[in-house]
Structure formats: C-alpha cells, structure tokens
C-alpha cells in the first residue's frame, strides 16, 4: 500500500473524511495520489472536509455478482458530489429505496464492512449549494 492510500484509510478509521488539497491550485483531489493531477507537483496537504454533499446520481442494484452484495440486493449504489466539488462512489444508509433521489442532501457517516471502516452517506435536511444544479430544473428524478 502506498503512503497516501494508508493515510486516507487511517483518517477514515478515526472517523474523519480527509481529502488531499493542492495549495498551488487551491483544489481538492480525489482519489488520493502522489502528485496533483492539475500541476503535477507534489506537496499535497490533507484536509478534513465537511462531509456534506448531494446525491449526484444513483442506481438501485438488483443483480450483483459481488460476494459481499449478492444477498443485499436491491441496494443503492450512488455517486456523491461533496460541497468541495469532489465526486465519490458510495452507499447510503438510513435511506429507503423510496427516499433516494438525485439532489438528495447527504452527510458522511462511517460503517464497518469486512473489518474495515468505510465512509458512506446518510440523508440530511440541510439545503446548500454544490455545482449540482440541473440544467432543466424541473427534471424528473
């Protein structure tokens, strides 16, 4: 495991969602790596983020071949856009199949799966801005 993979998961284990940040480019980076993908310089910093975001898109998986998920269908697999404009694949907890929608406000939570702490997301009431604005605001979800 690389140092940056190790650092990410160590923060997660302590209940913190931290992302790399490039001071020169003033942007967050996900997934973790050695160099900033924009300026290709090293020296990335770790910063704890708000953990708040919106469901950017999702699917309800009805057929899964993955050993950990075969018995869990149907389950929600979602792409979350954080307030920091970063997108992360994840799962939702405390969210029924009826509640899920694109644009649903969510906040990070932590679960244990296979002896490993994982960041997932749970619905919240708060309203805030990300880049997640539909071009057609009446769009159905």
């Amino acid at each position: 495991m690389t140092d940056y993979q190790d650092t990410y998961w160590q923060y997660i284990s302590s209940g913190k969602l931290c992302l790399q940040f490039c001071p020169a480019c003033a942007q967050y980076i996900f997934y973790p790596r050695e160099l900033c993908p924009n300026c290709l310089q090293s020296g990335l910093e770790w910063k704890e983020v708000t953990g708040k975001g919106l469901v950017y898109s999702y699917t309800i998986v009805h057929v899964s071949a993955l050993p950990d998920f075969q018995e869990e269908t149907p389950y929600i697999y979602a792409l979350i856009e954080l307030a920091e404009r970063i997108r992360m694949p994840s799962n939702l907890i405390n969210c029924s199949l009826d509640m899920i929608r694109v644009g649903l406000p969510v906040e990070v939570a932590f679960i244990e799966r296979n002896g490993k702490t994982l960041p997932v997301f749970k619905p919240i009431q708060e309203v805030f801005e990300t880049s997640n604005k539909p071009k057609n605001k009446e769009g159905a979800s």
Binding site: S57, Y58, T59, V61, Y77, G139, A140, S141
Partner: peptide
C-alpha cells in the same frame, strides 16, 4: 452500475 448512473443523471437533467 456506471452506465446506470449516466442514465439516471440524463433522466434527471433532461427528463
């Protein structure tokens, strides 16, 4: 699941 994310988002943005 990746293409499903695309389809869902297209439905959301464009109906």
């Amino acid at each position: 699941s990746s293409y499903a994310l695309i389809a869902r988002r297209h439905m959301y943005e464009y109906g």
